[in-house]
């Protein structure tokens, strides 16, 4: 996996909905999700390095999120749906074991 900050992929099936309608969100991020249970050829344990948290907020309010364990596959993928009550900025955040954060945003409009 790349050592540089992974670039997330986000797809909303639509960005403008009427109140009460749903938006389907898919997200994919490049990450090795090193489990901490594998050994290198010298027999040393390869330290755990995973994305341990994912959140989706609408104007700072938590809408959907997940706490990840090493049993989530590499390149974590999430598909979920939201029923936003208002227009605003959706902020997606992935948090790495090393403390680094990867963020992405999308604007949505509720009419």
């Amino acid at each position: 996996m790349a050592e540089t900050a992974p670039k997330p992929r986000i797809r909303l099936d639509r960005k403008e909905v009427k109140a009460g309608e749903t938006i389907e969100i898919k997200s994919l991020i490049s990450h090795i999700m090193e489990s901490g249970q594998r050994r290198d050829p010298q027999g040393n344990i390869i330290p755990r390095k995973i994305i341990n948290k994912f959140t989706c907020e609408l104007d700072g309010e938590m809408v959907f999120g997940a706490d990840l364990e090493p049993a989530v596959s590499a390149n974590p993928y999430f598909q979920f749906k939201i029923k936003p009550g208002k227009s605003g900025t959706l902020k997606f955040t992935w948090i790495d074991d090393d403390g680094s954060k990867i963020e992405a945003t999308e604007q949505i409009k509720v009419t």
Binding site: T22, S35, Q37, L58, E61, M62, V63, F64, G65, A66, D67, L68, E69, P70, A71, V72, S73, P76, Y77, F78, Q79, F80, K81, I82, K83, P84, G85
Partner: peptide
Amino acid sequence: PRAGVITFHFSPSAVPEANTRIR
């Protein structure tokens, strides 16, 4: 090796459904 895989958190503005890929 360990039981935990993932914990999803929902809010009233989410649809109670999620999909991911696991080991």
